[in-house]
Design a protein around this nucleic acid. Sequence first.
DNA 1: TCGCGCACTGAATCTTACT
DNA 2: TAGTAAGATTCAGTGCGCG
Lengths: 400, 400
Amino acid sequence: MGTLRTGVADATARSFVSRTGPTASAPRIGRALRPVNEPASLPLNEILVGDCIASLNSLPAESVDVIFADPPYNLQLENALVRPDNSLVDAVDDDWDKFASFAEYDRFTREWLHACRRVMKKNATLWVIGSYHNIFRVGTALQDLDFWILNDIVWRKSNPMPNFRGRRFTNAHETMIWASKSPEAKNYTFHYEAMKAANEDAQMRSDWLFPLCTGEERLKDDNGQKVHPTQKPEALLARIMLSCSNPGDVILDPFFGSGTTGAVAKKLGRNFIGLEREQVYAKAARQRIDNVVPLDPEAVSAAPAKRTEVRVPFLSVIEGGYIKAGEVLVDDKERFSATVRADSTLSLSGIVGSIHKIGALAQGLPSCNGWSFWNVKRDNKLVSIDVFRSDIRAKMRDTQ
Amino acid sequence: MGTLRTGVADATARSFVSRTGPTASAPRIGRALRPVNEPASLPLNEILVGDCIASLNSLPAESVDVIFADPPYNLQLENALVRPDNSLVDAVDDDWDKFASFAEYDRFTREWLHACRRVMKKNATLWVIGSYHNIFRVGTALQDLDFWILNDIVWRKSNPMPNFRGRRFTNAHETMIWASKSPEAKNYTFHYEAMKAANEDAQMRSDWLFPLCTGEERLKDDNGQKVHPTQKPEALLARIMLSCSNPGDVILDPFFGSGTTGAVAKKLGRNFIGLEREQVYAKAARQRIDNVVPLDPEAVSAAPAKRTEVRVPFLSVIEGGYIKAGEVLVDDKERFSATVRADSTLSLSGIVGSIHKIGALAQGLPSCNGWSFWNVKRDNKLVSIDVFRSDIRAKMRDTQ
DNA sequence: TCGCGCACTGAATCTTACT
DNA sequence: TAGTAAGATTCAGTGCGCG
């Protein structure tokens, strides 16, 4: 396994070095620097522009430690989507995300996965991210190609786009699959202790909470438009690299896009190889990466898990058995009473709504915090429903 | 759609009724009660013992509203799992969870999904739960069979089994796929408003947090051993039924196991059909369900949704004397004004059209909800015309 | 400098009833 | 059944301008 630490490009340099790659289909956008302890043909910390399968086939076999892949999701939008305020959603409608059929998508998927397999070291692992549109195809292909799934990881988005038509649950997560090259490859890298320490000394779970990539981090062009429609947050890549790679490792990304993998690799003292079809993305990524200042090697430690006070649905109070459907809630002075329904809405004089809405309605106020307004009788005493929320939060705290 | 409410078995009765089913392979463990307004061959609130595909094929086509399926996971533990203290983990190693290959599992999956499809009503939906061992196979099969995925839902476990070897992330979730019968079936049941009210008046997301089924809820046999290795929590099924079904609906579960689907269906005033291969599970489930006390019907009905309210023509507002022909409507900020004509159309700069059309035109947008856009002046304050619609609807309700 | 209000945005398979 | 009109529908932010 490579232990290189100096191959990462100097952060102060800005010059672009475009060179002829090993095949005509894969010109390199890279730095002239080349570490001496890796095969000459391994284009470390470079971006190969061209078809990812041709580029993969140009690389030496068993040469990379980790692959992170963010392939096209094969979204199938039927019509334009407008928000309630009638503005148009800037959806992904790029050519690279269009496939004629599931069969074609499967063929494409199996091809790039097969090519990835060849360049993976024996104990290398592979990450693929996707949504329900494509992730089941990817998972099936992985299993058919004899990859061995280690985990599926859920990226829970703290700020997902809402469902504007109210016809589904908010699509608030994406799924990543983490797999080794084969069931026999047992000696893959996994920093269990670091992950546990990062998670308040509890094992790191398979559900991770991160915000979308927005604000400063989001790459914009000269017109202020986003450079890439699906730029991933650096925190996501950082947790992957910290848990599953070592400084000096080679991280390959066959769908490099805006170069998040490269930026995080450089920051964390890893080497990257980026494959990207679109010249415009590759160029933006190169510039982005050249601006990254690597962390001090000592500082390259696991990022702590994010912890905030979570929202508890009132439904959880019923689901947790604290209050039963059909019970009656009253306010402090027992002037108002409402019946709890199975779906956790309250019913008062035939009107149905949330604990907050009905609390407001009872008092004739524009708003009301139902948690502090409503009580339930226990042993002939009033107990605030907020007590149950606190209890649920205490139990959840370990699982954040 | 069935509206049966009385077919749910009497909670005080305890007797088992085993009968000969429609095929030799599907003897019924059911109640003698049979609602009169459903086809004679629909075995409501019964458990059919036998091969699930044979049982499915014995049911009439297009007869169920929701299917919840918890198929075998095809777990692939190579060796016995031992805890750090050397105790043996009681993992799933039952015969019904063994498949020789992915191909065999796929064949099985496609077969039962195809049989499910036939018994689904046009706007029925299907839920399948699984883990990374099988869910990718299931999702691929669903898409190949032309089901239309609406969401993938993550069940986050608040108390998952830890990873004992420290070689992976804690497997802390399972995945559910929610799908309609085809892309064209748009009128599936989804109680958006109820879910939103249940979740602090914010849209219900695709990640749900529940504890595992433990304690009192977990079914035990006479020796104190768990009856079924993968009993699902009732809260999970309750959220599914509350969001995606109505009282009286028929919920089918082709892998009934310990009968959680039946228990929750009865509690929430839904009908169930359970299919189960193992006599011992069916018997335990029957007993469990007979002990369930249904909730009061008031507590389980769907909260009223705006989109199900009757349409009120704007003309009714004029006819009701709320607004007089010739009056002027304005928007929130009084940037636009339009005159009400006697036939309830608006006139703005010589153009005449509905409240919606003129609202859209004024803003230069493709569409507009005139009810929320326009206001009228009363006592020098703006009053939304939607207030008048609400009033008309309230009066209509009283006279029903 | 701070707070407030408003505009804008993010991998999205996003309506329904009537003629 | 296809076309048209009614009308229902958003959360957690970031960033900017104004007072």
